[in-house]
């Protein structure tokens, strides 16, 4: 069963990585910890759910709608929300995002009720038989789509002018300002890209999970672990960290039972912080 557990871990790891990607990017550039990350993931899940429920749009196709929408949402929230209201203080940014998460979660409760929602796709239970394990189509699609998105983001960050500007701001805020980069705009764009990652993650997650107003939090601690493991701000690190954590969770569950098996994640979290706090790829973006 070990190979099966590893394959399963890998599959989930890619999606975890996508959730972590948004977090690591926002942290790497803006140096803020977004407490509303889980709430925003939940919103993306609902967006994908309603597109499916009301218009019959397949969640995987909904990516092209939800991701840009999430970007705009993130941009607006930062530009006219988090960035303005916090006065730039770290502890206040923390609380603004916390306040935001309270508003979003309870807004979801108010508008969508606490009812748990799932989707059933025509191919939900079709699977590829590897002999020792079945891989369902949704998991396979989610896996490759997540890889693709990581790749696209990596390309965006390394090959484009926007990416260079973002990295410049991450390294040297003031310097970037001096050479004429609109730092506030770059911050908002980065925040938007981070939330866009969640938009994609929501679409990937919906077919294999469920959504209610509190679902997002289920993935938050895991996302933090991945960010730390991969190195804060590192895209490659997030992807690799996602795989490692996915496999750790899965194999830990197999060996120690699904309850105690969760211990592996916290142990890696602690050990990496103590032994190599910069993570596996600890460059700053």
């Amino acid at each position: 069963m070990l190979p099966a557990a590893m394959i399963n871990g890998l599959m989930y790891g890619a999606i975890y990585a996508l959730v972590a990607l948004g977090l690591t990017l926002i942290y790497g550039v803006l140096h803020i910890i977004n407490f509303a990350h889980g709430a925003m993931l939940m919103l993306s899940l609902y967006a994908a759910f309603f597109l499916f429920h009301l218009f019959g749009i397949d969640p995987y196709l909904a990516i092209v709608i939800v991701t840009p929408a999430a970007f705009v949402f993130g941009y607006v929230i930062y530009r006219w929300g988090v960035g303005k209201l916090s006065g730039g203080r770290d502890q206040n940014i923390l609380l603004i995002t916390l306040g935001l998460s309270i508003i979003i979660e309870n807004g979801a409760l108010f508008f969508f009720t606490g009812d748990q929602q799932t989707v059933s796709l025509s191919y939900s239970y079709d699977a590829v038989d590897l002999g020792f394990v079945f891989l369902s189509y949704p998991k396979i699609i989610s896996f490759f789509a997540s890889l693709l998105i990581c790749l696209l983001l990596w390309a965006l960050m390394t090959k484009t002018d926007l990416g260079r500007a973002i990295r410049a701001v991450a390294k040297q805020r003031e310097g970037a300002r001096l050479v004429g980069i609109d730092v506030e705009n770059i911050f908002a764009i980065t925040f938007g890209i981070g939330i866009a990652c969640l938009g994609a993650a929501g679409c990937m997650l919906l077919p294999i999970f469920y959504v209610d107003p509190y679902t997002g939090n289920i993935f938050v601690v895991i996302a933090f672990t991945i960010v730390v493991l991969g190195g804060m701000g590192s895209i490659v690190g997030a992807l690799l960290g996602g795989f490692i954590i996915g496999i750790t969770e899965s194999v830990g569950g197999l060996l120690l039972g699904e309850s105690l098996g969760q211990i592996g994640i916290s142990l890696i979290f602690i050990l990496i912080l103590i032994l190599k706090p910069t993570g596996l790829f600890g460059s700053k973006v």
């Binding site: 209201l85 916090s86 203080r89 206040n92 935001l100 606490g114």
Partner: peptide
Amino acid sequence: DTPGLSLIVYGIILIIIISYLP
């Protein structure tokens, strides 16, 4: 009484406090 609404108000008040009293 409506579930959720009271905490939405709570969250808004929280944000207002933070932004006006850093």
